[in-house]
Amino acid sequence: MKIIYTALIVLMGTSIIFSQDLHKPPEGMVLVAEGGFIMGSKYGDHDEKPQQIAYTKAFFIDKYEISNTEFAKFDPHFKFPDSKKDNAAIVTWSQADAYAKWAGKRLPTEKEWEKAARGIDGRVFPWGNTYDNTYVVWDQKSTRGTSIAKPASPYGCYDMAGGVWEWTADWYKPYPGNKVPMEQYGEKYKVMRGGSNFNNHSFIRTSQRYYVLPEKISNYPVGFRCVLDIEKKK
C-alpha cells in the first residue's frame, strides 16, 4: 500500500515539478517543491493519525535553524555564551515569530515543516527509516550541522531530527478525520517538531508532534527555522 501511495505521489509531484518555474533559493534556504506528500503516521501517537496525503505550495525553507548570532542581529539584547555563537537560538514562539517577520519570512506550518523534513515518501527520519546515532547532533548544546554523518533531508535541510525542537506556526489541533479527543487541542498550545536528541529516538521522527505553551517553554529547548513564500521572493 505504501508503495502505491509513494508511486502516486511521485507521479503527481513530478508533473507539478515539471510544470512549475523553479526558482533559485535565497542564500541559506532550499526549495521545497509544490505537491503532495505522505503526512502523519500509522504507528505513532494518536495525534499523528490518520496518515494522509497532504499538499503544499512550493516554498523556501532555511537549511539550518536560526543561530544565536543570527537572532542577536534582530534582538541586540539577546545574550548567549561566546562559545555558542553557531548553536541554535532557544526562544519563545513570539520571539521566533517576530524574528521571522523582521527577516521578511514566516514560521513554517506543520505541513511545510514535515514535508521539508521527510520529502514525499513517508520516511520515518529525514535520511530514511533507520535510526543511527551518527546522523544526529546530540542535543541543544551541540553546534548546528555537526552530526558525524551530516545527512540532509530530501530537500537539503539539516538537523530536522534532534538538536533542538522547532517551532511551527500552527496551534495544536487534530488532523482532519482524527476522532480521538484531547483536551490540549485548540488555541492554547503551539506545535513543536523535530525533537531534541535528549529525548528518545521516536521523538525525532518526522511525523512526531508535541505541544507546548508558546510563551512558557520551561526546559524544552525550542528553536526555529523560517520559510519564505515563492511570491514574496519576487
Binding site: 520515518v124 533507520t130 528518545n200 521516536s202
Partner: peptide, 12 residues
Amino acid sequence: LWGNFCPDLPHQ
C-alpha cells in the same frame, strides 16, 4: 518523552 519500548518505534 523517554517512555519508548515499542517494537513498532525506533528505540534504544
